[in-house]
Write a protein that binds this DNA or RNA. Sequence first.
RNA 1: GGGUGAUUAGCUCAGUUGGCUAGAGCAUCUCGUUUACACCGAGAGGGUCAGGGGUUCAAGUCCCUUAUCACCCACCA
Length: 879
Amino acid sequence: MKLSKNFESKQYEELIYALWEKSEVFRADPHSKKTHFSIAMPPPNETGTLGVHHALFLTLQDIIVRHARMKNLDVLWLPGTDHAALPVNSIIEKQLAAEGLTKHQIGREEFLSRTRKFVSGSRETMLTQMRAVGISADWSRLRYTLDDTLVRVVNETFIAMYKQGVIYRGERIVNWDSVLETTVSDDEVDYKTEITKLYTLKFGPFEITTARPETKLGDKYVVMHPEDKRYVKYKDGDTFKTEWINGEITATIIKDDVVDMSFGTGVMTITPWHSQVDFEIAQRHNLPAEQIIDFHGRLLPICEEFKGMTINEARPKIIDKLATKGLVVKIDDNYQHNVAINSRGGAIIEPQIRLQWFVDVNKKAVSWKNKIVSFKEVLTDVVVNGDITIIPKRFEKVYFNWINNLKDWCISRQIWWGHRIPVWYRIDTDGKEEVYVGLKPPIDDREGFNDWRQDPDTLDTWFSSALWTFSTLIDPALTENMELSFKDLLAGSMDFKVYHPTTVLETGWDIIFFWVARMILATTFMTGQVPFKQVYLHGLVRTKDGKKMSKSRPESIINPIDVINQYGADALRLSLIMGVSPGNDQVFSYDKVQSSRNFCNKLWNIARFVEGMNEGKEISPDLKLLTDADYWIIKKISDAQTLMIKQLDKYQFSEAYDVLYRLVWNDYADWYVEFSKNNTNLSVLILTLQAILALAHPFAPFVTETIWQTLSLKDNSILSSENYFKMPKSNLSRYNNFEEIKNIIIEARDIIHKTGSNETILYYNNSPIIVNYRQAIKRLTGVSDVIEVQDGRGLYLTSTSYHCWLDIDQASARAYISKLDEKIKHQQYILTILNARLNNKEYLRKAPKQLVQDSRLLLQKTQQLLNSLIEEADKFRVK
RNA sequence: GGGUGAUUAGCUCAGUUGGCUAGAGCAUCUCGUUUACACCGAGAGGGUCAGGGGUUCAAGUCCCUUAUCACCCACCA
């Protein structure tokens, strides 16, 4: 087959991907004798389509795993998708609302069937997108968070944690979303600043301030700081009667030091049911809590005439009423305050007290490294002791900070889409509620005793995501057998034994709490192992104006498919790699995509050149380095390869790509290919092309594989399953020979360009090698001839140790003097610096010997160069 | 309130144990259609490395400080 004139990515990508899939080159082999390497793909949410930010992590991980394969490891990259309970639920509810329906009208079953349809469509789209990016995941092991196996593991985990006493059910204050009608975890709450009214109200002898008068309807306690001098005459527990919104009440004074004396009057009333802080005060002082707002966001009957109203309806009416009673002291219209909203869906969060399921993070009941500790302690320990390292390291601080502030994790949700909680209830004969936690409710033969009812709630999405690294490695064939214990499941799963803990987790820093920390929590508990040994955190991909790409601004999201269609998957991948560094955000730009596309085109054309040289010729089977250029490029490639492997091992993607880019463009294309036109050594040309394709393959798999296949570079092999090439030994003096020739060409070219000379001749003597490159020098410099002489004339070349002259006339040479003068000035500057350094006794005493030695050498060289430059300049200076 | 990051060429950014003349891509300008490539080649211009102070033989790199921007956590009744 022949390479077409132009590189048209669209014509090859699908074919190449099909080839990879058919030949199963991405399939992991747990029986392999090779070292095993594993990485679990963070399962993207099945909420529609992927954006370029997904393409970033797919590319990074693909480079990691392709690099590992190139190093001859057995690699498992396990792909998957996430059911994304809350986000998907939110989408479906919005769809329903658009049709004028609610979930209650259609019922749970209908709701779930709609949702399943939506996510499976979404999944198909996403999997197609992933393939389009060229990822080398093991599709035979594709997983989904609602697979039967994963459901089983979720249930086993819940049950095990419950039995261990680290999952409990309790009435706690939770974040309530009254639109989606569910609780959400602390991490899912965002705060939005808002300008609102701040009311100062008269409350008995005190003045209190509030932004939320509607919550004050049931307030009966007034709290102040015990050391507040203004209120010393009031004692904790004192009561007083006062007129309030719905008539006279009896209020009690409470002293508590959480009150900020400097805020407002230093006095506040509390609403324990609807505020975290108030709830904690009430608990400390054993005060009752009363619900004021119901779970749909409407006021309850306790509010009397305001009952049934929404907050927005009631608020002005309450203020009016207070005003007529003369209880409104002041209204500040310009009060800035933070409103809690659900990060998914955007509805306002109302704290509520509810009976919910929680993971206890403080209870010392977790067995880890032969000690009984709390989840918090495990989470801290694994990072402190280096079981897990986080890249970049600064995120360890963020991680520890989060752990320190961590409260019990509310895991139950009232939405329908998700993992149903494995808890069963029934009412006993004496009217008491019985609770059973298990995979299935127990069978009770007695009449009327079998009506166990499953908890209607589902689990937080992140509860199942937390199990991802190991739940995906459990053999699905085993999980159907309910007789097997969880231990049996682990013990019987080959993949788990071989691939867990996974080698590295690659994910975004924005989910370090949601996911990374919780994976550590759940995995250590269930398997006694860490989920991964390293965590590499990438930054976010931002739009050209630096904004976050977000679902709320659909125009900001760039579909990778659009970019791929126009420029190719490799160009997209490379553009995302340019300038990435761990933990730092990056801007997506078409400039980068274009430059990357050009790079792919360069590879393509190099291959076309080699193809042309190769045509109709026999390749000698034994590889022999012949020319200086051969030795030179071999060393360049093997140096670059060593460096790139080192960099990729440290996840320095951008740096490695930079090395590759220079190697391909500045060394291989600009010099070796150019020299091959005159001094061809076909076997080396082909070997070096192969080696370069292998190096580029993790970055740009499609174009490299296309070239590999089209030129049939190695029988019927597939580049994706090749290893990095072992390069033959180079020879430093042959390498240096080529450097000399290069320098001659660069300098001659420069002079000719600067002086505008043409038809010049290059003279030389005392060089044994120049003659070999006569034609190449002619072609690359434009000189009309290269001639050996006893004594040359014209401008003497200063950048080579050979004697070379460029035969240009006096007039042109004079035009070059200003350039020479500049060079002289620069060399003098360097000389000054070097002299100053070497005359510094402290430097000689303290700097490393090698460095001083190098400086001396450089000084010598600089002096030599300077001398010959001055000599040359003088020769042509008009006297 | 606590914390993190950024500040390097017109733009987007590299620069990892401090080491010698600070780099790349894009953009700009000049020259060039030499049969792999105009998605190209050869060159050029462009930087007091945010400001100030310090440590050191040596600072873009380490420390202190100021400023601006971005972000994270906590949350104010």
